[in-house]
């Protein structure tokens, strides 16, 4: 469904020089599949996701191909991209604090996409928004729908972020560090909600994280990136259990021991089941 071929992205410096930050990444994603992209900050993983959304800053130049259902997104006109964003491709961002508009109720922010793409009436959109808030397990959804982001906790805001992204049941969902800014206790809940919804709605997911534990939890396949290059790419279990690349080993070694143990439990060969 999604096929990225030899994607290269460069940024124009203020001096005019071009700096390439993604050096020819290729990947394929099937319907219903979850791909984890792991790497430290600056590895180009976020640039990759923004390129797919067609939301790279003006100073960026991309080459290669991003084929989504056969169409090259890098060549698609802006108007067509607007029709795809939200409707076919949804995105969840890292910072739930800043990713929501502080001057708009969360309900209005979720309903916005529904009304834009599906032309729902105000009341229909509200009913659908309420249903979405319940899907992402916001307690008292009927009251919270009129809350402003600042009245919610980080975890709740990220649920709203998920609700916005899945509102139109997109075919592809990109989650860029969806749990990084959250408390450890909330991270697992958010991941579970995400995992369940993706499975239920048959959405393909690209999950971007620096945290191997997060990737291990829900990704079918994993791509390890370092400074814009692919280090390793394969089944999550394979990559984590038998890393072929030094860099992956280093990432694994850098994980806290407790996390490694939980990795054993989730990614392991049917542990105590």
């Amino acid at each position: 469904m999604l096929s990225i071929k030899d994607l290269r992205v460069s940024f124009q410096q203020s001096t005019g020089a071009l700096t390439e930050v993604v050096h020819g990444i290729s990947l394929d994603l099937d319907r219903g599949e979850t791909l984890g992209i792991v790497g430290e900050s600056g590895s180009g993983k976020s640039v990759l996701s923004l390129a797919t959304m067609g939301l790279l800053p003006r100073t960026a130049q991309a080459s290669g191909q991003i084929l989504f259902e056969g169409q090259d997104l890098l060549k698609a006109p802006e108007k067509q991209m607007c029709g795809l964003r939200g409707r076919k491709i949804g995105m969840i961002f890292q910072e739930p604090m800043s990713a929501l508009n502080p001057a708009m109720t969360v309900g209005a922010q979720i309903a916005e996409g529904l009304r834009l793409h599906n032309g729902l009436s105000k009341s229909d959109a509200r009913a659908e928004t309420l249903r979405l808030l319940e899907m992402v397990q916001i307690p008292n959804a009927a009251q919270r729908i009129d809350s402003y982001p600042h009245e919610m906790s980080g975890g709740q805001r990220q649920r709203v972020g998920i609700a916005i992204a899945i509102a139109l049941k997109p075919d592809l969902l990109i989650a860029d560090e969806p749990t990084t800014a959250l408390d450890v206790t909330v991270q697992a809940e958010i991941l579970d909600i995400l995992d369940d919804l993706v499975a239920e709605l048959g959405i393909s997911l690209i999950l971007i994280s620096h945290d191997l534990g997060v990737i291990a939890r829900i990704a079918d396949r994993t791509l390890v990136m370092y400074r814009g290059d692919e280090m390793e790419h394969g089944d999550t279990e394979q990559v984590l259990r038998h890393p072929r690349h030094d860099y992956t080993r280093k990432l694994l070694a850098a994980m806290p021991r407790r996390a490694l143990k939980s990795l054993d439990q989730t990614g392991g060969e049917k542990p105590h089941a």
């Binding site: 959304m53 939301l55 964003r85 990713a99 508009n101 502080p102 834009l116």
Partner: peptide
């Protein structure tokens, strides 16, 4: 960031 979120919705 929220402007990007809005764009990601298709605005």
């Amino acid at each position: 960031d929220f402007v990007r979120t809005a764009r990601a919705k298709g605005l």
